[in-house]
Every structure is written in C-alpha cells, then in structure tokens.
C-alpha cells in the first residue's frame, strides 16, 4: 500500500470519499482509538483538561477525549474530514487550519495536546514557497507556546524513515520541548511511535530521553 503522504496533499487526499472511508473503517477506528488511549495514558492528566487535538480529522480521537470528560479543540486541514466530524456531532470545537502554518492560540492556552497519525504530513511541502523545515519549526514553536508550563504533548506519528523521524524530533527539541520517544511493538508491522514532549521543567518524561 502506498503512503497517503506520497500521493496528494492532505486537504486533497482526504476528500469526501476518503474522509468517510477513513471514518467508517472499523479497523482504522480501533487503531485510532487504542492510540488515543495510549496518548492519554502517557499524558496522565490529573483531571478534566483543555486539550488541543492536532489533525483531529473526523473526531475519532475526540470521542475518546470526551469519554474522559476532557474538552478539546481540534485542528484539521481537510474540510471533508471536518464535515464528517460535524455530521457525527462531536462536542469538540473544530478549526480549519494547517498545523504547518503554526498554532493560532495565545500562550499557555492548553493543558495538553495530542495528535494521532498527523505530524508526518509536516514533512511534505506542497508549494515552492514553503519548506518542511519551515513548517516543522512554525508548528513546534507554536505548539510549545500554546501549552501551559508543565504541560505535555503526545504525538503519535508514522515517520517514512529514520531521517524523517530525526527531522521531526530535532524540530521539537529546537522549539524548546523536553522530548522522549516511545515505541510500542518495535520491529513489528504494528510498531507505533509516540513523541512525548514536555513544556518547562517538572514534566515527567516517558520513554527514552533524546534531549
């Protein structure tokens, strides 16, 4: 199967048909759900929190966040995905936005951030006036500022290769995050990579510290 990242930009790839296919696939739902649970476990939030969901898509992760009594705000670049989220009557607020353009929230807004299967898209540059490096640094700098001191972000993503994995983690560290990498089922086809990021001191790093 080809990687969607290699075919079209996300706003075009996730058209109405793909968005619905993605959302109604029980296999994708189950994987998405278990990864969101894992993100929450790694965040270990003390109570109902305000969470940014980056690449929220049709709100599959948001449903899990709801079930824990959290309030979430989701960003996604695909109008079709957000359309499905509307139809599914998710409770989170939705924003049509490109994470590579930054995070349009004031400093210290969120308790935490989660992202499931999205940030590898930052390594794509769709037009000649943007670069993956520029998009990555705008994203991580914006994310760093928007999370409160002592807060955390857990980003599950699918790097295409080691170089991409390095590029993404390096951009996070450069933006000021403390960073750890955790891999579930390493070496198998179910391997899942989680970048665990902390803002300021006092955060508890899970996995291997890479800073």
């Amino acid at each position: 199967m080809s990687r969607p990242e290699d075919t079209l930009p996300p706003d075009l790839f996730y058209n109405d048909t793909e968005a619905l296919k993605y959302t109604t696939s029980s296999r994708i739902q189950a994987i998405q759900s278990s990864m969101t649970h894992r993100c929450l476990e790694l965040l270990s939030l003390p109570g109902p929190s305000l969470i940014l969901d980056i690449g929220c898509g049709s709100g599959l992760s948001g449903e899990i966040l709801d079930s824990y009594n959290h309030t979430w705000i989701g960003m996604d670049i695909s109008p079709s995905m957000l359309g499905v989220a509307l139809d599914r009557e998710t409770t989170g607020d939705l924003l049509l936005a490109d994470m590579g353009q930054g995070i349009p929230f004031r400093a210290g807004s969120f308790d935490a951030a989660v992202s499931v299967s999205a940030v590898q898209w930052l390594c794509n540059a769709e037009t000649s006036d943007v670069t993956p490096q520029g998009r990555l640094s705008r994203f991580f700098e914006g994310l760093y500022a928007s999370i409160k001191r002592g807060g955390k972000a857990v980003l599950q993503f699918y790097p295409k290769n080691d170089a991409q994995r390095q590029m993404i983690t390096a951009a996070a560290v450069k933006a000021g995050f403390g960073a750890g990498m955790l891999e579930d089922d390493p070496g198998t086809k179910n391997a899942k990579l989680y970048l665990v990021l902390t803002v300021g001191s006092g955060g508890d790093l899970s996995g291997r510290d890479i800073t």
Binding site: M75, L86, L94, L95, L96, D98, Q101, P104
Partner: peptide
C-alpha cells in the same frame, strides 16, 4: 457551521 477557517495565504 461553527468552524472557523484559519487557513492563511502563505
């Protein structure tokens, strides 16, 4: 429909 469009020209 309650969704704000924050996509900016580059």
């Amino acid at each position: 429909e309650g969704i704000a469009n924050f996509l900016l020209p580059n």
